[in-house]
C-alpha cells in the first residue's frame, strides 16, 4: 500500500472504518506516476522548501508543494488542472534543494505527460501550443526549425503579430532561416515519436 493511497482514504471519506482497511487496491494513477518518475509522491513531507525557491511561484495558481499535496490526497484532476504544472520552467531548483531528494521537476514533467494523455483541459494553452510546435519541427525535420516553430505557434494561438518586429533584423543577421535544414535519416527520428502518439 502506498502512503498516498492511505491519505486518499482519510481525505475523501473521513470514515475510520475505511481508514483501517487492510486491503487497499493499488491506485493506477500513483502506479503510473511511479513508473514514469521512479518515485512515490508520498515521499514529500510538505516542508515547502521547493515553493520558497521557485522562480515561477508568483505567476502560478498553486505553490508546487500544493500540487504534490493534491496528488497525495487523491485530488488528481485538481493537480493536473493547476496551471503550476505548465508554468514550471524546469529549472530544477526545487529538486536540488529538497531535503527528501524528491525530484519535483521530474514529478511536474510526469504531470504534464499524464494530463495530456487524459485530455485534461488547461488554461495554459499557449505553453502547450509552444511545446507541440517545437516537437512537430523535430518530428518533421529531425531538428528544431525556429521559423517553422514560431509560425505553427502563431497559427495555433492566433497571436499573429507578437515579436514580428524582430524578424527583419534576425533575417539580415542570418539568425533565422525560412526553410528548415532536414537531417539525412529523418525516419530514425520520426519513429521515436510513436511512443508519444
Amino acid at each position: 500500500m502506498y502512503a498516498g493511497e492511505c491519505y486518499k482514504q482519510i481525505g475523501t471519506s473521513g470514515n475510520t472504518e475505511e481508514m483501517k482497511m487492510h486491503e487497499v487496491h493499488k491506485d493506477p494513477f500513483i502506479e503510473e506516476l511511479i513508473a514514469i518518475t521512479g518515485q512515490d509522491p508520498a515521499q514529500c513531507y510538505q516542508c515547502g522548501k521547493c515553493s520558497a525557491g521557485c522562480p515561477v511561484r508568483e505567476f502560478a495558481e498553486d505553490a508546487p508543494n500544493r500540487v504534490v499535496r493534491y496528488v497525495q490526497l487523491g485530488f488528481y484532476d485538481k493537480a493536473l488542472q493547476s496551471n503550476t504544472v505548465w508554468l514550471c520552467a524546469g529549472c530544477q531548483t526545487c529538486s536540488g534543494r529538497c531535503p527528501k531528494d524528491f525530484h519535483l521537476a521530474q514529478f511536474m514533467d510526469a504531470m504534464r505527460e499524464m494530463g495530456t494523455k487524459r485530455h485534461i483541459v488547461t488554461k495554459e494553452k499557449k505553453t502547450v501550443a509552444f511545446h507541440e510546435s517545437f516537437l512537430d519541427q523535430i518530428k518533421w525535420n529531425g531538428r528544431s526549425h525556429e521559423f517553422g516553430m514560431v509560425l505553427e505557434y502563431k497559427l495555433k494561438t492566433m497571436d499573429l503579430f507578437k515579436d514580428v518586429d524582430l524578424v527583419p533584423g534576425m533575417l539580415s543577421r542570418g539568425k533565422l532561416s525560412i526553410l528548415p535544414e532536414k537531417i539525412k535519416d529523418g525516419n530514425s527520428v520520426k519513429k521515436l515519436f510513436k511512443e508519444k502518439e
Binding site: I36, T37, G90, D109, A110, R112, E113, T116, F130, H131, F134, L135, Q137, I138, G142, R143, S144, I183, K184, D185, S188, V189, L192, F193, E195, K196
Partner: peptide, 22 residues
C-alpha cells in the same frame, strides 16, 4: 554526422521515453 535535436524542454514535458530517446 547527421545529429538530431535533443528535444530540449519540450520533449520531457511530453513523454519521458521520447525525452531520453532523442
Amino acid at each position: 554526422d547527421d545529429w538530431s535535436c535533443c528535444g530540449a524542454s519540450s520533449a520531457h514535458s511530453a513523454n519521458h521515453l521520447l525525452a531520453l530517446a532523442l
